[in-house]
Every structure is written in C-alpha cells, then in structure tokens.
C-alpha cells in the first residue's frame, strides 16, 4: 500500500516539477523564473523524502535538508540581486 502511495506521489511531484520547469522556460519576467526555481527545489526536497520512505534509507533525508538550505539561500540571493543590483553589502 505504501509503495503504491509513493508511486502516486512520484507521478504527482514529477508533474509538479514539469509545470514549474515550464514556468522557468516561459518567464515572462526574471522574477517568475526565480519563483519557478524556488518551487522546483522544494518539490525536489519532497520527492527525496518520498524516496527515503520507499527505500527505507535515512540518507535521502540529509540530501533533502541540504537542498532546502541551499535553495533558500539561492532564492534570497537572487531576490537581493534583483532589488539592489548587488548581493554583498
């Protein structure tokens, strides 16, 4: 039952990532692309957690946490760059 649930979850999150990727390609503004990247990494985190449950492995969790940390920093750096034209202050 759980493996079926993980299969359904993989399909749903895969579709979600495709939709976000479509927005990444489409734009129209760079801000939309930043939002798309933000969504993509959160979806990747969720997918990794699902794979961790399916494979009964705690390693996936670490990867998920690292992606969440780096993704947040990336989004904030992009947003700051768009606001100020500079990342370091």
């Amino acid at each position: 039952m759980i493996s079926v649930a993980v299969d359904i979850a993989s399909v749903l999150i895969g579709l979600a990532m495709l939709l976000a990727f479509w927005r990444l390609l489409r734009g129209p503004d760079i801000v939309d692309r930043v939002i798309a990247i933000d969504t993509l990494y959160i979806n990747a985190c969720t997918l990794l957690l699902a794979y961790g449950i399916a494979g009964d492995s705690a390693l996936h969790f670490e990867a998920s946490l690292v992606i969440a940390l780096l993704g947040f920093l990336t989004t904030v750096a992009f947003a700051k760059y768009l606001l100020r034209g500079d990342i370091m202050e």
């Binding site: 359904i8 503004d29 939002i35 969720t46 957690l49």
Partner: peptide, 28 residues
Amino acid sequence: EFLLSFLIVAGAAFCFLGSLGLARLPDT
C-alpha cells in the same frame, strides 16, 4: 498504513497544486 499513505499522497498533491498555481495564474 492508511494514515501514512494518506500523508504521502496529500503531501504530493499539495506540491502539485502549488506548482499548478505557479503555471496557471495570470500575474507574478
């Protein structure tokens, strides 16, 4: 098992809805 499956599918479904909103809604 039922509770776990429900949580897994619900989590994935919310992710999907969020991305659908990103793709579908009209402005930034």
